[in-house]
Amino acid sequence: MRFKASMHNVNTFTKLTASLNSLGPLAWVKLSEEQVCFTIIPEQGTQVWAVLQIDSIFESISVQSAANNVINLEVPLTSLNRALKSAANATSAQIRLTKKDNLPVLALTIVTTTSSNSYSAIPTTSANNDDGFDPSFENELGGNRETIITQEIPVKVLPPDAVANLHEPKTREADVHIILPPLMQLKSISDRFTKIALGDSKSGSAWSTARTRLELAANMHGCLKMSIKTDAMNISSVWTDLSNPELDPNQVEGGEYGIAGHPSEAMKLLGTADGRSEEGWSKVRIDGRDWGKVMSVGRLGGRVIACFCNDHALILYVYLPNESSENDSVLTYYISSYSA
């Protein structure tokens, strides 16, 4: 079993692991020479299924195993993210699967270059100096110094049968699909709503959990609504002029005929573009604090399509920008809706 890769986009990898770490401490990482997949399945909260194209984070990769050259690992995200942060200013970085004390680890080797000229503050002397100082001594100590650091992340190698039954959740066809505004903007507003609703309540109580439930709704006319209700208040924000992307016949069962009978086509006949009509909305109820953690992926940029299954689930498709590949890296978030 062998895995080794050279990284060229440490910043993106660091932001990604930080975002995933907010949703769960452990990730199932599936390594192959075609893709790297991260999956978070917490006991409660949002599931994440991320498919990253190799060139989005790696310059080169080698994966060898008896299981069709696929390696499955259980990786502690806090440790991985901490190691990646130390590579922020690296001139090069490599990661490989190895062993320490007969236990598997991911070894992140970082090469940094620093200036070793400790005499830079000393004024240059003339060639005819009388104080015995040789200017060539400074030049010999000057220049750059290369430092190599290795960070080790303990991991667990998972046999193929341990992950064979793990699959993405199945959901019904979405009633509404819409491109979201910038996620950090949504996060700012949802965090404010949640803070107002909580007031000075005790975090973690059943009462406070109920009060942090946001209602998200969208229609097929470019409108998105976020609101929160308690006995004492009812506040909401509405976005208009957003885009509802057209369905791809190649991605819908039945092609063009499938699109004609798709629930979203019926929703186009309802509602209005100003968001004032009560018809044509598909809504979900989600935990505000969990939603704030999901929104942290906005630091990576990229386009986000939200698919609303009324009163059932919200699925987010986060497409990471990648100019070097025709295929997109996609993070898929599955968020279950609370009952009314």
Rank of each mutant, 00 (worst) to 15 (best):
M226Y: 03
K229A: 13
S208Q: 13
E279R: 14
Q44I: 06
I305W: 06
G199D: 00
Q53P: 08
M233Q: 13
T332D: 08
S32V: 00
L16Y: 07
P123K: 13
K4T: 05
I179H: 01
V176G: 03
H312G: 04
S296H: 11
S6D: 05
N139V: 00
L97G: 10
A266P: 00
S126D: 13
F38S: 05
S236M: 04
T209E: 15
I95H: 02
K15H: 04
S236H: 14
S86F: 03
A18K: 11
G298K: 02
L23V: 00
L216M: 12
G288R: 06
T147N: 13
S79N: 06
N89W: 07
F193G: 06
P249A: 13
N117T: 09
S65N: 05
V284S: 01
N165L: 14
S337D: 05
Q251G: 06
A174Y: 14
S337Q: 02
I259A: 09
L314W: 08
R145D: 11
A107T: 03
R211Q: 14
F133G: 02
S118W: 14
M1Y: 05
Q35R: 15
S188N: 13
I196S: 12
P321G: 03
W207V: 15
I110A: 07
N310L: 09
P159I: 10
S188A: 15
Q185F: 01
N322T: 02
A313G: 06
G292F: 10
V36Y: 06
P25I: 08
E43F: 13
E74W: 07
T194H: 04
F13S: 01
N219M: 06
S22A: 14
Q44K: 15
R211H: 14
I41N: 15
V48Q: 00
S329N: 00
R211V: 04
T39V: 12
R192K: 13
E256A: 06
D248N: 14
H167C: 06
R299L: 10
N234M: 10
N129R: 10
T113C: 08
T240H: 11
W28C: 00
A18Y: 06
S6A: 10
H312E: 15
S190M: 09
A5I: 01
L23F: 03
Y317V: 06
L80N: 05
A162H: 12
N165C: 07
M233C: 03
I110P: 01
A273N: 12
L183G: 10
N244K: 08
V330Y: 04
Y333R: 10
P135D: 09
I189N: 10
G199P: 08
P159M: 08
L224D: 07
A107S: 04
M220D: 09
M267H: 11
L80I: 01
V70Y: 09
T112G: 01
A93Y: 07
A340E: 15
E256F: 03
H262I: 05
N81H: 02
V105P: 02
E256T: 00
L247T: 07
P181L: 13
L141S: 04
N310S: 12
D134Y: 10
N165P: 03
A18D: 11
T125P: 09
I235D: 11
V284Y: 05
T150N: 11
A107I: 02
E74P: 02
V252T: 12
M295E: 10
G301S: 07
E253S: 12
S19F: 03
T12G: 01
